[in-house]
Design a protein around this nucleic acid. Structure first.
Ligand SMILES: NC(=O)c1ccc[n+]([C@@H]2O[C@H](COP(=O)([O-])OP(=O)(O)OC[C@H]3O[C@@H](n4cnc5c(N)ncnc54)[C@H](O)[C@@H]3O)[C@@H](O)[C@H]2O)c1
Ligand SMILES: NC(=O)c1ccc[n+]([C@@H]2O[C@H](COP(=O)([O-])OP(=O)(O)OC[C@H]3O[C@@H](n4cnc5c(N)ncnc54)[C@H](O)[C@@H]3O)[C@@H](O)[C@H]2O)c1
Lengths: 215, 215
DNA sequence: TGGATATCGATATTGTAATACTGATAAAAT
DNA sequence: ATTTTATCAGTATTACAATATCGATATCCA
């Protein structure tokens, strides 16, 4: 794997789809696949797929046939870090927080939520899906001691910034933010927003177009 | 509002952030705001903000001062459809499905989940957060009868395509897909993917960069 | 009242992601 | 053996989103 390169965010986000497609191909017993075939399956341009592959894979494709499926899968999994797990903590054990804690699929993606935090006395010290919930005061100590660099925010929007600040003080470098708010953090800290309102906006516009067309 | 225009997906996704920012400004008692100020708050380019605003707002800005906050808020809310609610149904009442059903914020964004569907006998006929869970067989009839055009998929990936097919047959035109799989649907149906694996990929790459730098 | 300044809207430029093109090559077909 | 075909890799082009520039204008301050 070429681990020194950096993909664009767009290319990076296509990778899980490639992986899904490649695994499906593999299940069908196919060992060699062309970029064209992947592109058709995922409704992408074939040159784009070839370029994405060339960015992170050492494997070369063979004309007329394509790439070795197993090698592509391995290269992509390596690049995405599916083979060496990152530890993370989660703050806000409400309904969304619980759903995330219970999501067994994260392990497959190299993410391991090792603990959760909340302010609600009723939740603190409970164990949710095998993960203990601590008082928020214990956040910094635990993060530093365990060298945690990923934090997940699932508290209501009005508390998200104060949680983010705590994260920053605890050495967290990547924040996965499910609250609908723009967080302020230092440059070296990445915020990945999971913004449902933005998604809804896309759905809503499409629907309006559809309705307008049919009348 | 200029409801005949279509924003790019990027612009559309910025809108909820503008709204959040404008509401905060309004709370502080400020009635007029400049594109520059919004841009600074959200770490965007001021020309970009001005252009986005001009796309969907009838309001003109005044040199030296800016735009009337209330008018911007109203225009954006209108464009995003926050004022006329869209009805939706959800399939897959697992941990994520339940979290979404219980999310009271959706109403603020113009989304109203009116019912849910599952195959699990234990869940069918239950009422989760005021929403009744029906057997999946009742999907088509209910969608057609209630003129539902938005469907939410929160079933495991392997069942997502069959649910999508049922959606298409029931007249659904916009699918909000939380399963990690690329769905095949007709052209006129929009799929908005909420792909956690893609987000994780971004977090993972950033973290690897950070780690590499510090050694 | 006149000059300085911040912002606007419109237009030009830049930058980057996606796509098209070209020659090379391996496999299949004639 | 030769031709055809599908694909690859590299390079060129295109398309479009983001940013910079510029004249106009409303407000503020001397
Ligand atoms: N529920 C959903 O479907 C959903 C989906 C996407 C995003 N979100 C967002 O996720 C966030 C949480 O949503 P939810 O529905 O789980 O809410 P919730 O009210 O069920 O849970 C919030 C939890 O955060 C805890 N909390 C509050 N302040 C805290 C603090 N300062 N420190 C630590 N813990 C704190 C509360 O005790 C509670 O347990 C919200 O911002 C929401 O917009 C929710
Ligand atoms: N849990 C999370 O945090 C989370 C986050 C993001 C995305 N997702 C995705 O959302 C999906 C659901 O996740 P989950 O954790 O809620 O799973 P879950 O197992 O808790 O729930 C799945 C539900 O779907 C129902 N179901 C299965 N097949 C069905 C069918 N054909 N028709 C109708 N209902 C059916 C099941 O009965 C169950 O109630 C998965 O694809 C997962 O990858 C989960």
């Amino acid at each position: 794997m070429k681990k020194d390169v950096n993909l664009t965010v767009q290319a990076l986000q296509r990778m899980p789809y490639y992986l899904q497609c490649l695994r499906k191909v593999k299940e069908n017993g196919i060992q060699i696949v062309s970029a064209t075939a992947i592109a058709n399956e995922l409704n992408l341009n074939d040159v784009l797929v070839r370029k994405d592959i060339s960015m992170i894979c050492t494997t070369k494709g063979k004309p007329k046939t394509g790439f070795i499926v197993d090698e592509l899968i391995e290269n992509i999994e390596d690049y995405l870090g599916y083979n060496n797990t990152m530890d993370a903590i989660l703050v806000g054990v409400g309904s969304l927080g619980k759903a995330l804690l219970g999501n067994s699929e994260f392990n497959k993606f190299g993410l391991n939520i090792i603990a959760a935090f909340d302010i609600d006395e009723d939740i603190i010290n409970q164990v949710i899906c095998g993960k203990k919930v601590f008082a928020i005061e214990k956040l910094q100590n635990l993060c530093e001691r365990m060298h945690i660099h990923i934090g997940i925010i699932t508290v209501p929007a009005e508390f998200a910034q104060e949680v983010a600040d705590k994260f920053v003080n605890s050495g967290i470098k990547a924040i996965w933010n499910f609250a609908l708010i723009k967080l302020s953090v230092p440059e070296d800290v990445l915020v990945q927003n999971e913004n449902l309102a933005a998604s809804l906006a896309v759905l809503s516009q499409h629907l309006r177009n559809e309705m307008d067309e049919n009348k």
